[in-house]
């Protein structure tokens, strides 16, 4: 790390170690509570949009794409704040959005589509989820930066 000689003190580390010991317990609690909220929302979407075994999994696609969009918005908002609120990342990013989105259902549904004799939709589902998810994160972050730079 470089800092001008004679300057009063070194800059704090860009990525400080997360709190250890008792402070870390709060991080896990925040992640658990946020994860429970996110999972409930995901379950609600899945109940509202059921799909037959081997059918196109709209519910998981919806939660993963909207969750990625919100994740992009969140990380851009947090990047613009210094210091960022210490609860925001464990509760919102790890907890709520991490629990709302899911990789396991995505993977099993892709297998289910292929097993039901729909290999083309299976590959399409993987591509739409992965490419769409990455683009949704980028779109959310770019939208926040565009609004903030006006």
């Amino acid at each position: 790390m470089r800092y001008a000689p004679g300057s009063s003190r070194p800059r704090p580390e860009a990525r400080p170690e997360l709190a250890r010991g008792e402070g870390a317990g709060v991080l896990y609690l925040l992640a658990a509570l946020g994860g429970a909220l996110g999972a409930l929302a995901r379950w609600g979407v899945g109940t509202a949009l059921p799909h037959s075994p081997g059918g196109w999994p709209w519910a998981t696609l919806l939660v993963n794409l909207t969750g990625c969009l919100l994740f992009g918005v969140l990380i851009a908002l947090l990047a613009a704040r210094s210091p960022e609120p210490p609860w925001a990342r464990p509760f919102l990013a790890v907890g709520v959005l991490g629990g709302y989105t899911t990789c396991s259902a995505f993977a099993v549904e892709a297998v289910g589509l292929a097993e039901a004799g729909h290999p083309v939709p299976a590959v399409g589902y993987v591509l739409v989820s992965v490419v769409g998810g990455v683009l949704a994160v980028a779109a959310g972050a770019l939208a926040v930066r565009a609004v903030r730079s006006r």
Binding site: G67, F71, T102, S104, G133, V134, V137
Partner: peptide, 26 residues
């Protein structure tokens, strides 16, 4: 299925952090 599948596996895994990781690498 609700406890281990939707609850535990669904929340243990994540798609948003995956997408965020990819965007950060790019």
């Amino acid at each position: 299925v609700a406890l281990v599948g939707t609850g535990f596996c669904g929340t243990l895994t994540t798609f948003s952090t995956f997408g965020g990781d990819v965007v950060r690498m790019v």
